[in-house]
């Protein structure tokens, strides 16, 4: 076959299909119309498709274009027939590509998303949620937590004071003491909450931020329990294949004091690397005694972490201030 014959045959088939559909009785059912159309076109369409390969290579592009146009023309003619049919029968033809009538989508703050996820994992490991006041006494914030008075350890916490012995808590750890004073062991609680530091508000610091504390106290609770529970948390939070390690650290209210590092990819192209996720340790006997429990009988472990830091690395936020600005264009990115 030569190109001009091919084009003429395609043109003829299009004409025949249109003529068929135009000539049908308007009461014809759509499936009947389709059957007649197929009977007319199928063999001729297949033949044209097969003939493409028989054409000289330089003609194939033009022929292929004609073939595609033919198919579109037939489909359009069928659509038009269907639309005439619908109009005639009184049913509305609806453009279903139009958008839904949407309602506003609410959003949970990214820091809350992280806290909720952490709480959910620890709930499965038997932890409930405890809360405590943000305005605290020096005793609950420091004294009961084994901070030596007038010692450089206090300088790890730049404190906002409300009065002589009252302050804005610098960590959620006072909740440990309040919980041990109020609830008899066994204790397994998480304490998320706002804490305060005397820091400038810049890209990496905020004078108020969320912290999340955990505490487990009972007879026979050991460092192995600490490791096992926190490593299990890390695997559920970051993924089952993540490596976890524990190294030494210092917080006056725990001993041995440790930090947990997890091997994570921060998405900066540098691949996997160890990142400190939380501080932890065995609750110091002085803290257990301060809360009115017998430290020979009861032991326990505690940890603390910063959900805002985790939210920042998880969601790729590089300036902490956007978490506070409350710009709806930021918040609504976390819409459900």
């Amino acid at each position: 076959m030569i190109l001009s014959d091919y084009l003429a045959q395609a043109e003829a088939l299009a004409r025949d299909c249109r003529a068929l559909l135009d000539g049908l009785d308007p009461d014809t059912r759509l499936d009947v119309a389709k059957g007649q159309l197929n009977a007319l076109k199928d063999d001729r369409l297949n033949a044209l498709q097969g003939a493409l390969r028989a054409l000289p290579p330089e003609d194939r592009r033009a022929a292929g274009t004609a073939f595609n146009t033919l198919k579109t023309t037939i489909q359009d003619a069928l659509d038009a027939f269907a639309a005439r049919l619908a109009a005639a029968s009184g049913t509305e033809h609806v453009d279903l590509t139009m958008p839904a009538r949407r309602s506003w989508r609410g959003a949970v703050h990214p820091v809350t998303l992280v806290i909720d996820e952490i709480c959910e994992i620890f709930r499965e490991l038997g932890f409930t949620v405890a809360l405590g006041p943000e305005a605290e006494t020096e005793w609950y914030n420091f004294g009961a937590l084994n901070f030596p008075a007038d010692h450089p350890a206090m300088e790890l916490h730049d404190t906002l004071y409300l009065g002589q012995d009252t302050l804005l808590r610098t960590h959620t750890s006072p909740v440990q003491v309040r919980t041990m004073q109020r609830n008899a062991p066994p204790i397994r609680v998480l304490a998320p909450g706002q804490v305060y530091r005397r820091d400038f508000f810049d890209a990496t610091h905020a004078p108020a931020f969320m912290q999340l504390e955990g505490l487990a106290i009972d007879e026979g609770v050991s460092f192995v329990d600490l490791k096992a529970t926190l490593a299990e948390f890390a695997r559920r939070f970051y993924g089952a294949t993540r490596r976890v390690r524990f190294g030494p650290s210092y917080f006056p209210f725990v001993e041995p004091g440790a930090q947990m590092d997890v091997e994570v990819d921060l998405g900066d192209g540098k691949g996997l690397r160890w990142v400190e996720i939380l501080g932890c340790g065995m609750v110091h006997p002085n803290v257990i005694e301060a809360a009115g429990l017998d430290s020979e009988r009861y032991t326990g472990w505690a940890f603390g972490m910063g959900p805002a830091r985790i939210a920042m690395s998880r969601y790729g936020i590089n300036d902490i201030r956007v978490l506070y600005d409350s710009d709806v264009r930021f918040l609504e990115q976390f819409a459900r």
Partner: peptide, 18 residues
């Protein structure tokens, strides 16, 4: 610390409610 075991052991539920 990494030389210590890390198997999850039995625990008793806490007394403090949410």
């Amino acid at each position: 610390f990494d030389a210590l075991p890390d198997e999850l052991r039995a625990f008793r539920p806490g007394t403090a409610p949410d």
